[in-house]
Design a protein around this nucleic acid. Structure first.
Length: 919
RNA sequence: GGGCCUGUAGCUCAGUCGGUCAGAGCGCACGCCUGAUAAGCGUGAGGUCGGUGGUUCGAACCCACUCAGGCCCA
């Protein structure tokens, strides 16, 4: 007879090759069809909630690997919490307003000027919704579980209404005010521009050096000296209010051709040449800080120009003394505000000089350069005029130069509740811990928040103006507008006249004629997403504020963590989150950022088509996500290898559970052989370790622990040893059933522990697990350790055995190298362990099976070992060829082969089994 | 320029309060097996712990500086 037919070989239909790219979509379709997300909530009804509030990605473009990292990390957590007993809803969101969408439409050829604002906004909305559909499909393809049919979207009417109410609340508390701010302004398109709408091009400009006569030298400068500035925008001289110097730079009072000038000492040689000074001797030098509050005279207006200190001053060019016009430059604006200067801006929205620039009013700003320069020459302040070509910001659409211009903006006053913000930060749990420092520093140093944008695609700032220009925002108007928006969407603001947006019969003492206008600015999109705690957490019955967790990339300390905290603290006094977790960015294999030009971009959509979502997910578990995570084809390949190892281990266990019914065949732990109990103890330790890691969001620990368990503990050790019993023993033998019990429990635990990370594979394998079980592994509970008496002692004991085993393996390898044996079953080993190990080993039956050799015996302690016996770490081991013949059935080499006349090719054990069970 | 962070074997990561080897898995090399087979097993070779200089009896772990990289500002 063919004895192979009497072996119980592994049998399973769970395929070795995963074929994830093809299989995953089907698995996902099944989840959707069977409403698995909804079921995961139903089975946790009434349990404690765990709310992970989704930070909304911007609805534009396909997802990249960073999106994948973010969403998958969230999915790990939500799936784990759900299986760990929490009611854990996940409501994904999208950020849908803002400039990039406007730009995307323009790129597609939409001409904003050919339609009404409301029409343009409608196109923006349609575009955003299309983008959501695309991204939603891509996120779902990653296996992210959540309420995809009911996401929150910032353009949603109800969301917008809640945002408007939140704004109203901040107004009510006095946190919103109007002030001037300097912004990019394009005279050619008569509009404000964002940074993204600027492109730098070369421009030819006048370059002038101007002397500002000192009026009050504060004892540092003589009254007959002058400070020299340099500028390429002479038209801003009428707006000059100050001269900035760097506090730390060295400045010099110079005698040049009979006059006294102040310039940065370092730049003097260059200036001497530039200004054609014949002589230039330094009278004295001083730090810039000494010049603070020196007063100069404006060259041609009856006005002071104050010397102030600014860190923005550089020595790259010019004189080290910077002409400062707070209405016409960003640095100028901030430093001017610091010194309480006016934000003077004598240029109108078309780019023409106003009457605030006497002598130049009515001139286009660029045409004022010449007369201003002439005027400077006339008063003797002009030291030099030439023309240079330099890089200058231009309007990306009209290609014309842009200017800085101070305009009225709405602000949220951070300083009024900064202390509350800082206190709220201390009440949040931050991971990593440095997140707290990072946000604290940011909030501490941050300026007031400019929340207005001169844009179209966004939530309107719900403010009305009376006839005399007085802004009108009251509880009544906010509530009225919010209700209109809730009903019609924020487009109503652009479709209707102010009067139609005000409550019926609204009056104001500032509008005697009953005429009102409305604000046309919209809110900064950070105000949109920063309102989600009010618009989503507070609105949905399932959710609650504060959320348990916000989890985003570390760029969001400046972004969403910040804006959410700001609006929440301003209106409720509390942070909107109990804890914040941040992840880093995805970099290439060299640790550099990904860019198309470097060609090092890993596209998750492509990876899902080649390797599968579970590989991406496993990769995310394999890196320290709190720092930047490297990814490359090589790294993904490595992860795919790990995946295969895990998958094969699962497959092997499934195969050997063929014919095993846990309800019928399970063996109680206290009835198991020691080795099996040892494995149960190790499994308990694994479960404990992994669950603790999940609780602390340390997925890398899980990855390593599970991988090591599959590789070292299972595949290379236990499963290898178990094969003999599993294959050759009779089906219902207690030893075999015990091993199967261990494998069953291990398999179930592993699959559950793996479910949050590789849900597709876990679900696929789950279908092959024998016995009664839930339809979906994700609808089960996380495994708990099953402690039993003596487990700790057992582990301690067997850890020692493992040391001896290592020695035996080394001895076998040496014998193999000497061609004494091939496979280990050809060997017989004689051991001389240390006395301590000896005592341990003598209590262990079947040492031969443990070492997978045909014979193993303890011949004495280390002291008894013959001189020629090779010594290893703890044991001397002599390896010889096993005596006897190779059993045709179990391949053990033993003298008992042939002892049964009916089965001359079998060993005694096999002959017995075959006779009894395969007759 | 500022705030925060990262830098340990080819790769991904461990290295608790500074003091026994600087470890794991993968990959690699070599070998075994062919009854987990586009599998499985074993052994082995790989590291100036980014660099420099300090503190200390002693530092991958502490300090300073520096290089490289990342996020956010300016």
């Amino acid at each position: 007879m063919d004895y192979k037919d009497t072996l119980l070989m592994p049998k399973t239909d769970f395929p070795m090759r995963a074929n994830l790219p093809n299989k995953e979509p089907a698995i996902q379709a099944d989840w959707e069809e069977n409403r698995v997300y909804e079921k995961s909530l139903e089975r946790r009804k009434g349990r404690p909630k765990f709310i992970l509030h989704d930070g909304p990605p911007y609805a534009n473009g396909d997802i990249h690997i960073g999106h994948a990292e973010n969403k998958v990390l969230k999915d790990f957590i939500v799936r784990y919490k759900s299986m760990a007993g929490f009611y854990a809803p996940y409501v994904p969101g999208w950020d849908t307003h803002g400039l990039p969408i406007e730009q995307a439409l323009v790129k597609k050829g939409v001409d904003r000027k050919k339609m009404s604002v409301a029409e343009f906004r409608e196109l923006c909305k349609q575009y955003a919704l299309e983008q959501i559909d695309r991204q939603r499909a891509q996120f779902k393809r990653l296996g992210v579980r959540g309420d995809w049919d009911h996401p929150y979207v910032t353009l949603d009417k109800k969301y917008e209404a809640a945002q408007i109410r939140l704004f109203g609340e901040m107004v009510k508390r006095g946190y919103i005010y109007k002030d001037k701010k300097t912004i990019y302004w394009s005279p050619s398109s008569e509009s404000a521009l964002a940074e993204a709408e600027i492109e730098y091009k070369d421009k030819r400009s006048p370059s002038i050096y101007v002397a500002f006569q000192v009026k009050d030298g504060k004892g540092v400068l003589p009254s007959d000296s002058a400070i020299v500035i340099w500028t390429t925008t002479p038209w801003t001289i009428p707006a000059n209010l100050a001269i900035s110097v760097h506090p730390d730079y060295e400045y010099a009072l110079v005698h040049a051709d009979g006059k006294k000038y102040v310039v940065a000492k370092e730049l003097l040689p260059a200036l001497k040449e530039k200004l054609s000074w014949q002589t230039a001797s330094i009278e004295k030098t001083f730090k810039g800080a000494a010049l603070e509050h020196v007063v100069c005279a404006h060259p041609f207006y009856e006005r002071d120009s104050l010397v102030i200190l600014g860190e923005h001053v550089t020595l790259d060019a010019g004189t080290g003394c910077v002409h400062t016009a707070p209405g016409h430059g960003e640095d100028d604006f901030y430093v001017g505000k610091k010194y309480g200067l006016d934000i003077l801006c004598p240029v109108d929205e078309k780019g023409y000089m106003t009457e605030e620039a006497p002598g130049f009013e009515g001139l286009f700003y660029d045409d004022a350069n010449k007369p201003v320069t002439e005027k400077l020459k006339e008063v003797g302040a002009l030291l030099k005029l030439e023309f240079i070509t330099h890089s200058y910001p231009h309007d990306w659409r009209t290609k014309k130069p842009v200017i800085f211009r101070a305009t009225e903006q709405w602000f949220a006053s951070i300083k009024d509740f900064r202390d509350d913000l800082l206190r709220a930060i201390t009440e949040v749990k931050w991971k990593p811990a440095w997140g707290e420092t990072r946000l604290h520093n940011m909030v501490r140093d941050r300026e007031d928040w400019c929340i207005s944008r001169q844009r179209r695609w966004g939530v309107p700032i719900p403010v009305f103006y009376a006839e005399d220009g007085t802004p009108i925002v009251t509880d009544e108007t906010i509530e009225h507008v919010a209700n209109l928006v809730a009903e019609h969407g924020s487009n109503v603001w652009f479709e209707r006249e102010a009067k139609e947006l005000l409550p019926d019969g609204f009056t104001s003492e500032h509008s005697p004629n009953g005429i009102f206008t409305k604000e046309t600015d919209i809110m900064d999109v950070w105000f949109d997403s920063g309102s989600s705690h009010a618009a989503v957490l507070e609105q949905r019955d399932d959710l609650e504020r504060p959320a348990d967790l916000y989890l985003e990339g570390s760029d969001q300390y400046r972004g969403w963590f910040n804006s959410s905290l700001t609006t929440a603290v301003a209106t409720t006094g509390r942070a909107p989150y109990k804890s914040v977790l941040s992840h880093g960015f995805v970099l290439d294999g060299e640790g550099r950022k990904m860019s198309k030009s470097l060609g090092n971009v890993i596209d998750p959509l492509k990876v899902m088509k080649t390797l599968g979502a579970d590989i991406i997910r496993l990769w995310i578990a394999s890196v320290d996500y709190t720092a930047d995570a490297p990814v490359s084809d090589e790294i993904l390949g490595q992860v795919a290898e790990v995946y295969r190892k895990i998958r094969n281990t699962i497959r092997f266990m499934l195969g050997n559970l063929h014919g095993f019914d846990p309800a019928v065949h399970s063996v109680a732990i206290d009835e198991m052989p020691e080795l099996d109990r040892y494995m149960m103890a190790k499994l308990n330790a694994l479960i404990e370790k992994v669950r603790k890691a999940y609780d602390e969001y340390e997925f890398l620990t899980i990855y390593n622990a599970i991988h090591n368990y599959c590789t070292t503990d299972m595949s290379a050790f236990y499963l290898d040893i178990a094969k003999d019993t599993l294959y050759t023993d009779f089906e219902d033998s207690p030893a075999r059933r015990s091993i199967q019990t261990v494998m069953y429990k291990t398999l179930v635990a592993l699959l559950k522990l793996l479910t949050p990370i590789i849900p597709h594979t876990a679900e696929e394998a789950w279908r092959y697990v024998p016995g009664e079980k839930a339809d979906y592994v994700q609808l089960t509970d996380m495994p708990e350790p099953e402690p039993f008496d003596g487990a700790d002692a057992l582990v301690k004991k067997w850890d020692q055995v493992m040391v001896v085993r290592d020695d035996v393996l080394k001895a076998l390898e040496e014998a193999r190298n000497e061609k004494l044996i091939g496979k280990s079953l050809e060997a017989a080993v004689t051991l001389y362990p240390t006395a301590a190990h000896c005592a341990v080993l003598e209590t262990i039956p079947d040492l031969d099976k443990l070492f997978i050799v045909s014979k193993a015996e303890i011949a004495g302690t280390l002291d008894d070992a013959p001189a020629n016996a090779p010594r290893y770490r703890e044991t001397a081991v002599i390896v010889g060829r096993a005596e006897g013949e190779k059993c045709e059935r179990c391949w053990v080499v033993t003298p008992t082969v042939g002892s049964d006349a009916d089965h001359p090719a079998l060993c005694a054990r096999c002959a017995d089994i075959v006779k009894k069970h395969y007759a």
